[in-house]
Amino acid sequence: MLKYQDVAEKIKQTIYQQKLPKDTQLPNIEGLINQYQVSRTTIIKALNQLERHGVIYQIQGSGIFVRQPKKSGYLNFLESHGFSVDLNDLPGASQVFNVDIIEPDKKVKENLRCGDDEHVYYIKRLRYVDGEIYGFEQSYYRKKLVSYLNKEIAEHSIFSYVKDICKISIGFSDKYFKAIKLDAEIAKYLGLQAGDPALCVEEIFYTSAGEPFDFSKIIYHYDNAKFYVQSHSK
């Protein structure tokens, strides 16, 4: 984790742990520099990240303020820091069905830019939030970059493992959305009926160097999954 990301996380945790209400004014840039003992550049980058994530808003000449907290249980539609991280306001869990090493098919190979001799980890799991099925996920991780995965890791936050243990700096992602009708197999996992509507999201995650390491597809439960988007003017 880069220094500005660490500072941004500390500021965010302070806001959430102290349950600071909307429009609470935070210390100014000089105050934050003194508090966290980092450079002006680091603080500015941290604040810009928090603003992009909808945690704060800044008014030139007036200060830095807490933005309206997101509603509990809602998933940020635009962020790419992982399912578990974004829903940490509610208890989550995963039911893992398999963690296998496979040869990628054409679609996975193209999305992950795999070489001809590369293998990937294939993980299939149900994601739960507050005891309710939230979505059915199929993920493919490049073994070249994520050298080891098992069921125990997959039951928790793979992204935390990737960052903390594999030391991969996660950069950005590309998301693709489409509305679908469930087939019988996926409907059974979600506890729904074949032909029911669902939102399918395919996402490619990249390292900070721009190399793809994870291709995931999540099919969300139409009645349980909830999303939000926070925009800003910049």
Score class of each variant (00 low, 15 high):
residue 3 K to T: 13
residue 4 Y to G: 02
residue 4 Y to H: 13
residue 6 D to W: 09
residue 9 E to F: 10
residue 10 K to G: 02
residue 11 I to R: 02
residue 12 K to H: 10
residue 15 I to E: 02
residue 16 Y to Q: 07
residue 17 Q to S: 15
residue 21 P to C: 08
residue 22 K to S: 11
residue 22 K to G: 08
residue 25 Q to T: 10
residue 27 P to F: 12
residue 31 G to N: 08
residue 31 G to H: 07
residue 32 L to G: 03
residue 32 L to K: 04
residue 32 L to R: 05
residue 36 Y to V: 02
residue 38 V to T: 11
residue 40 R to I: 03
residue 42 T to C: 10
residue 43 I to R: 01
residue 43 I to Y: 02
residue 45 K to M: 11
residue 47 L to W: 04
residue 50 L to M: 08
residue 52 R to Y: 11
residue 53 H to N: 14
residue 55 V to M: 09
residue 55 V to T: 15
residue 58 Q to Y: 12
residue 58 Q to W: 13
residue 60 Q to M: 11
residue 60 Q to K: 14
residue 61 G to W: 05
residue 64 I to M: 07
residue 64 I to T: 06
residue 65 F to S: 03
residue 66 V to P: 03
residue 67 R to Y: 15
residue 69 P to S: 15
residue 71 K to Y: 06
residue 80 S to G: 13
residue 80 S to K: 09
residue 81 H to S: 10
residue 86 D to G: 13
residue 87 L to S: 05
residue 88 N to E: 08
residue 91 P to F: 14
residue 94 S to M: 11
residue 95 Q to F: 10
residue 95 Q to R: 13
residue 100 D to M: 09
residue 101 I to P: 00
residue 107 K to Q: 11
residue 107 K to L: 10
residue 115 G to W: 09
residue 121 Y to L: 09
residue 124 K to M: 08
residue 129 V to H: 05
residue 130 D to M: 11
residue 131 G to T: 10
residue 133 I to A: 11
residue 134 Y to F: 14
residue 134 Y to Q: 12
residue 135 G to N: 03
residue 135 G to M: 04
residue 135 G to Y: 01
residue 139 S to L: 01
residue 140 Y to C: 05
residue 141 Y to D: 03
residue 142 R to Y: 01
residue 144 K to W: 05
residue 144 K to G: 04
residue 147 S to W: 07
residue 147 S to L: 09
residue 147 S to C: 04
residue 149 L to G: 01
residue 152 E to T: 14
residue 152 E to K: 14
residue 153 I to E: 03
residue 153 I to K: 09
residue 154 A to P: 00
residue 156 H to A: 08
residue 157 S to V: 03
residue 160 S to G: 10
residue 161 Y to A: 02
residue 162 V to H: 00
residue 164 D to M: 07
residue 168 I to P: 00
residue 172 F to M: 09
residue 174 D to A: 11
residue 177 F to P: 05
residue 181 K to P: 01
residue 182 L to I: 04
residue 182 L to D: 00
residue 183 D to Y: 09
residue 184 A to M: 12
residue 185 E to V: 15
residue 188 K to W: 06
residue 191 G to D: 08
residue 191 G to K: 14
residue 191 G to W: 07
residue 192 L to I: 08
residue 192 L to A: 06
residue 192 L to K: 14
residue 194 A to D: 05
residue 194 A to I: 01
residue 201 V to W: 02
residue 203 E to Y: 02
residue 204 I to K: 05
residue 208 S to A: 12
residue 210 G to S: 07
residue 211 E to H: 06
residue 213 F to M: 04
residue 214 D to G: 01
residue 215 F to C: 02
residue 216 S to L: 11
residue 219 I to S: 00
residue 221 H to R: 06
residue 223 D to G: 13
residue 223 D to M: 07
residue 224 N to M: 04
residue 224 N to D: 07
residue 226 K to R: 15
residue 228 Y to H: 09
residue 228 Y to G: 02
residue 231 S to A: 15
residue 233 S to E: 12
residue 233 S to I: 14
residue 234 K to S: 15
residue 234 K to Q: 15
